[in-house]
Design a protein around this nucleic acid. Structure first.
Lengths: 365, 365
DNA sequence: CAGCTTGACAGATACGTTTCTCCATGGCTG
DNA sequence: CAGCCATGGAGAAACGTATCTGTCAAGCTG
């Protein structure tokens, strides 16, 4: 047999498949460990011949540097946490799928392009899981008031960037958010321009920043133009509650002739409710909702949606985070406000030729 | 003397915030490193008093074990890769959002419950990113024929479990998949029972297992019942192509009176197309599509959907993977076939008693 | 030709754990 | 009282990498 000689001198108690280590490569290439490390990482000063030789030997042995060892030595893991809010025990709810999916997709791409990978970590994770993964930094989506995990991370000196303004005084290093007030005002103006006299709002009962800012903007707008606010609030993470709230809103005596829904499923819910009450969209009711879903392009009628551009946000958040990681936590916290995108479809436009707008059934005061 | 003596011997060049290490705890508690490790991990044989004392000191110092060091020593990182197929440079497409999101959510929860976290890793990741993260195992979604990354991982001895039957002879350790044939046959029978004479199929052009199995089942069913197949295939990752294909299918001279769409957006696309051709659903056209989206509960009319139960699949995949990781790659590959769920709504049922239904405004074009 | 720089590498150490081996002590039994 | 076991704990060896500090020869300069 060939390899019978020196009983190899290595430790055959290897975990699995006796992976080749850097010293095996060094031995095989007839150079020192230092040289291998330098050659592979393009560091020291070596003649190209040596560099090539080492690389080739490494390839031949199928050498893969141990991520754990490298992390231990350098203090960098190349891992970024993606913290998602939780409802009960579950990571995120159906309501936010489209937003979250798009945001995560963009974040993943952006991180990858800079050599980082994302770790999904629900905010309510068991502590042992959190501390068991070496994170270079964390993206946190819509951090709640005093998220213990985030606080903990910040205290450990791990850079944290949040998607959405941090509630309370969470000391994140940077955040990115949409200009929610501007978005709402824009929509209300758009609806008013389309002839709406009484614009209603479908909003949430939770205290997150998005809901709060949007609702406040709505109320302010109402006050400014002298309209009585007409809104229904419901727990946004419960899809059934959304349908009920939509129905309630259209059942009111002071029924609105236009509605903006803050959450993704509101569009279909409102459409269904409108149908139940025999309201035609957009003739009797103008509709807009905030959603990333493409289904609204093909509903009957297609519904105008506000896109928060989660992709842009995901990218921005990751860039900011990696800058913080690599640049060293220099300077003051960065905050970046991104515009939204109103995709106007039929549901928010009065039919053109129609001069007289069909008034609500009984115009009562 | 207590401290001051030996000038501490420590290195003040610490990366960031001089995190306390295990030896700091040992010193502070007046015991050895071994004792601290044992006390914190509940291993050795120590009196409860010592154990408590060490824990308390560790807490006081805010000690967090270094994940990197632990991983290096134990060979376990507690990290599981979640590999998603890519189209172009992007991780996944809009078509699969709902499925992917639900699957990822369940997988995250399941992993977390067993002390693992998930790392998102697009299949086309740069190699250096892949090898820079220490993975205990990997979940791969719909692996393509000879995915280089998966092959590489398997060769390194990393356990791999796939969602969907592995194409080709990818040597995964286990897989979980739906019973796609049974699902399609079930749907076709269901539509036939509702009175359909000619059932059409909206399918994909790609060669993945799902598309292939489903299409084959359809063709077989057609042959068995003696129906001429009527189908359109399109590149599933292109949403616009889907709308076009739906239109084409309903424009055919041998127009089907029922359609099953294999992909998520097919429902709304078909509905839109039906509207264009003045076809009433379900009166003139029965509709079913495969989707995880809840919007189909509130479309007009609500559409019958086939759910693949991605949550169940995600959970199963993770369980299998962790079993493989912890149990040691014992035994033959496991394969697990999970049932699907047909959610019957109005679109696939002929109206029962109703004599006259309020007809659409003007039926013609 | 002594002394200096520079290129090309080798040796040794540290990163922070886990764990294997080994050493005290003290209370028993035979 | 010698021998033994159980208990409680300390020491030291890995794990695999990245670097810091040398070393040695060759090529210069003055």
């Amino acid at each position: 047999m060939t390899a019978a000689g020196k009983h190899q001198a290595s430790r055959p108690i290897g975990r699995r498949l006796e992976r080749a280590g850097i010293r095996d490569v060094a031995a095989a290439a007839g150079v020192s460990i230092t040289t291998v490390s330098d050659a592979l990482n393009g560091k020291g000063r070596l003649p190209d011949a040596t560099r090539r030789h080492v690389r080739e030997v490494a390839d031949r042995l199928g050498y893969r540097p141990s991520a754990a060892a490298r992390t231990l030595r350098t203090g960098r893991s190349g891992l970024i946490g993606l913290t998602v809010t939780t409802y009960g025990e579950e990571p995120f709810t159906f309501t936010e799928f489209a937003y979250f999916a798009e945001m995560a997709r963009a974040a993943t791409s952006a991180a990858l392009a800079r050599g980082y990978a994302l770790v999904i970590l629900p905010a309510s994770s068991r502590h042992d899981v959190w501390s068991n993964v070496a994170l270079d930094g964390t993206v946190v989506i819509d951090p709640s008031d005093h998220d213990p995990v985030v606080t903990d991370l910040v205290r450990q000196g791990v850079p944290v960037v949040s998607d959405g303004r941090p509630a309370g005084n969470l000391p994140v290093h940077a955040w990115v958010d949409n200009d929610h007030e501007a978005a709402v005002l824009d929509i209300l103006d758009h609806l008013a321009a389309a002839g709406a006299r009484r614009i209603g709002l479908l909003t949430g009962t939770s205290t997150d920043t998005y809901t709060r800012l949007s609702t406040t903007a709505y109320l302010e707008w109402c006050e400014r133009v002298g309209q009585e606010p007409v809104y229904e609030a419901y727990p946004a993470h419960d899809p059934c509650a959304g349908a009920v709230a939509a129905d309630r809103l259209l059942a009111r005596p002071d029924r609105p002739d236009a509605v903006y829904g803050l959450f993704d499923p509101n569009g279909t819910d409102l459409l269904a409710a409108a149908r139940r009450y025999g309201l035609r969209v957009p003739d009797d009711l103008l509709l807009v909702c905030c959603s990333e879903s493409s289904v609204y392009a093909t509903t009957e009628p297609p519904i105008t949606t506000l896109s928060l551009k989660p992709g842009r946000i995901g990218t921005a958040v990751v860039q900011l985070l990696i800058d913080a990681i690599e640049g060293g936590g220099s300077g003051a916290p960065v905050q970046q406000v991104m515009p939204t995108d109103l995709i106007v479809r039929i549901s928010s436009q009065r039919r053109q030729p129609r001069t007289t707008v069909s008034p609500p059934r009984n115009a009562g005061e």
